[in-house]
Design a protein around this nucleic acid. Structure first.
Lengths: 157, 157
DNA sequence: ATTAAATAGTTTAGATGGTATACTACATGT
DNA sequence: ACATGTAGTATACCATCTAAACTATTTAAT
């Protein structure tokens, strides 16, 4: 039987906060969600919708790059979205191998519902934090992310 | 063909930073990793090791609660860890239904290697951010997490 | 004491989301 | 013209989770 904390240094506390953040993020990323008239979409589906929505239309391979997954994974998620009537494929006019993905009307609804969700979340955050705090928060997130990115790059070599 | 940004408000930028953070976190959470002599563990395995390591020993159901998954999921991950020689089961002395999980020597090695990884990461973060910034960062993370938590709770009702 | 209900953990089928690999079809450079 | 490269797809497999049915044990009610 041990004590709860074997090592006690001031860096543990920040780890704990970040740990809880990761916990909640993962929890959020595990469940499907309803997007208005567009119906229920899984996390990976809405991520794809988000990327397509921001670009207007996008190649399969660009989507793979952007979401950090293989082309095979994209084929699967797009096929599901197509079946749900959220996206549609079109052959690229100058390269018949390439496939351009776009949002249907229903897809646009899902996209806007998702944007709205984010906007609401950001507003809640602004209600609880000052502008200065948010500015620093963003800087820290950027630093944190680039450290994480370096970590991920290092590992994938 | 649309413009890259349909809507441009100042809350978009913070979304983008957070989006990238989530992207990198998920990327990190997708790949197994080597923990010294203890061998390679998948993300969910090291999460379990972490929780057990901090408590010394823990019941299956406590572990499920702590990791935010069902008991069935815990049974599965612990069975894998046991097969790898990282953890072992013991019957609770006062309730023969209950099972206490503990780390083996090898499990302790994995736990310490993981702690070390976190400590190194925190140190890098401290090199790039001031103490004041870190303090605000932690406050923001806490706020952000509790908002996320509320969101998750709302949904699971 | 008996018995019903609650609780701890396990098992298993199926959902989700990813990879690796082999494949088809098309494009491009020499 | 032909070898090589590239875009996307299909498929087998892996990791992780849930839900639901199950066993075994404990607790509570009468």
């Amino acid at each position: 039987m041990k004590n709860k904390k074997v090592i006690t240094t001031n860096d543990i506390s920040s780890s704990q906060h970040i740990g809880k953040l990761i916990f909640q993020l993962q929890r959020l990323e595990r469940n499907p969600r309803a997007f208005g008239e567009a119906g229920t979409l899984t996390p990976s589906e809405i991520h794809a919708v988000d990327a397509i929505g921001e670009d207007g239309n996008i190649l399969m391979s660009q989507l793979a790059e952007r979401l950090g997954v293989t082309k095979g994974a994209i084929t699967q998620v797009i096929s599901k979205l197509e079946k749900k009537g959220i996206t549609f494929r079109a052959t690229h006019p100058e390269d018949s191998r390439a496939v351009l993905i776009s949002l249907t009307e229903k897809g646009e609804i899902a996209f806007r519902a998702h944007m709205e969700l984010h906007a609401q979340f950001n507003q809640k955050l602004r209600e609880e934090l000052s502008l200065d705090e948010i500015a620093i928060f963003e800087k820290c997130i950027k630093t944190f992310t680039s450290l994480l990115n370096r970590e991920n790059e290092r590992k994938s070599k």
